[in-house]
Design a protein around this nucleic acid. Structure first.
Length: 440
RNA sequence: UCCCCGAUAGCUCAACGGUAGAGCAUCUGACUGUUAAUCAGAGGGUUCGUGGUUCGAAUCCACGUCGGGGAGCCA
């Protein structure tokens, strides 16, 4: 025999006036004495189930009375259209079977603090808001891969354990690796997708990346998921066009397919609907002027001199001037990673861009054209004090049939936070890893 | 690493130098249209830890622990 339900709640409208068996968890219960209302959640949706003392066997009514929040159960009954129920349908229950009891469920429908909820993350993900958020995350990931695949990309995953720091900058998590010394958890897959790009033309990797920075803000996780496309023969301009087409496609698909979830999250979709290409572009030089002209608009966004990096308040100020994501391009090369291609007209700036999301969500993409000349790349490795020896495999990509190429990295959690209007990035991943949290 | 803030019932908070409180949750009872149900009753405390000031500390001070927000860094 099977314990599987005969239908999911999401498909309940197709079962009007039929008898079905549902299987799920009690989201909420109201006991009116001889009438019990149970909001049953099965993962696909929630349905109001009505148990009437007059209409069910005594044992079934007693079983329904015993149900507490998050008890798992199976319910058999008649599907009936009813305007009084949220969603338009409810189940007239005929039989109730308790599967797993749930005494003293810790998360009530009322207020809880962040610390308490994070300590109970394994249960918090059952709540409506978290449920909606994680569904949007899944949609963004599916949409991203399907869109790239349709454009002729192939997924080419990069290793998570690496022997050296890829960019030689940020702090990495280290671990023992048998007799080969220390291994590091990757903070990017970019160097490896460049190898894939030379093999397949258009590739992307998608997986967890790690930053051992002691960042303590709502935009940072120590473990986050990054999607990194890389395209052969693509210039800086090609790269920006790909990014704006890609990001707007993701947003439009979430609006199209997950509007019910965005509604649960009370997200104003009219702001998202404007997210269509082309995205505005502003050079680093013009960004400095914009900051100067708007000083005082945002606390901390003080004027900078050429060569200074933009801080979080500066990025916020720039983003606030536009109604859709904005590219900030051509930063001073000295501020950026060693592999970025210098602008041939102005070697002191790099052919790179950061994409800043609106509404203060910050940088969601960082990308650039990569150096394709072996001699220049080797020089840059030396200039940055990195080991040429460790990068021999990477230099090989420029020694054998090198081509101009570009790519970018997109942080999934930041994109999901922006699309859903979630204040803190920690809610956009099932089990966030942060400076002071590795449990559960 | 630096700056700011917080910790009191299971949860969210109040009490701010003088007897430890409320709402929700839990338990008991009533109720056939609830959806954060309502009504009546009950139980529930190492006030984060250590030390100090005081006749007296949840309250003031010091240190510590845990957590929150931000900077830097970045996706």
């Amino acid at each position: 025999m099977s314990l599987l339900p005969t239908t999911s709640i999401a498909a309940i409208a197709g079962y009007a006036d039929q008898t079905v068996t549902l299987a799920g968890w009690v989201y909420h219960k109201t006991d009116k004495g001889k009438l019990i209302f149970i909001q049953l959640r099965d993962g696909s949706g929630t349905l109001q189930c009505v148990v009437s003392k007059k209409q069910v066997p005594e044992a079934a009514f007693a079983a329904a009375q015993q149900l507490t929040q998050e008890s798992s159960c199976r319910m058999t009954g008649l599907v009936r259209a009813d305007a009084r129920a949220a969603g338009g349908f409810e189940l007239d229950v005929q039989a109730v079977q308790l599967v797993g009891a749930s005494p003293d469920y810790p998360i009530s429908p009322k207020d809880h603090g962040v610390e308490f909820l994070m300590e109970h993350r394994q249960l918090w993900v059952r709540s409506a808001r978290q449920h909606a958020l994680l569904r949007v995350r899944a949609e963004v990931i599916a949409a991203a891969q399907e869109w790239l695949n349709a454009q002729g990309f192939i997924r080419f995953d990069s290793p998570i354990l690496t022997a050296t720091a890829a960019e030689g900058t940020s702090n990495l998590f280290a671990t023992e690796y048998f007799d080969l010394g220390t291994a590091y958890l990757a903070q990017t897959g970019q160097l490896y997708v460049e190898a894939g790009m030379m093999a397949f033309g258009k590739v992307y990797c998608f997986g967890p990346t790690f930053r051992a920075e002691k960042s303590k803000t709502r935009r940072h996780l120590t473990e986050f998921w990054m999607l990194e496309p890389e395209v052969a023969f693509a210039t800086h301009d090609d790269n920006l066009r790909l990014q704006e087409d890609f990001v707007s496609a993701l947003v439009q698909r979430v609006i199209e397919r997950r509007s019910a979830d965005l509604q649960v999250l009370e997200r104003d979709t009219s702001i998202l609907a404007r997210c269509l290409p082309p995205f505005p572009r502003i050079s680093y030089d013009d960004a400095l002027k914009l900051i100067e002209a708007n000083q005082g608009a945002i606390e901390g966004a003080t004027p900078l001199t050429w060569g200074d990096d933009l801080g979080a308040p500066h990025e916020q100020l720039i983003a606030s001037q536009f109604d859709r994501p904005v590219f900030v391009e051509r930063y001073p090369a000295a501020l950026k990673a060693f592999y970025m291609q210098p602008d041939p007209q102005r070697p002191e700036v790099a052919l790179c861009a950061d994409l800043l999301a609106p509404e203060g969500y910050g940088e969601i993409i960082g990308g650039s054209e990569r150096i394709h000349d072996a001699a220049l790349l080797e020089q840059r490795i030396r200039d940055h004090g990195l080991s040429v020896e460790a990068y021999q495999w990477y230099l090989d990509l420029r020694r054998y049939g090198t081509v101009p190429h570009s790519g970018f990295g997109m942080g999934i959690e930041r994109v999901v936070a922006w699309i859903t209007g979630t204040r803190h990035i920690r809610e956009t991943i099932p089990f966030p890893r942060m400076l002071y949290r590795i449990y559960p």
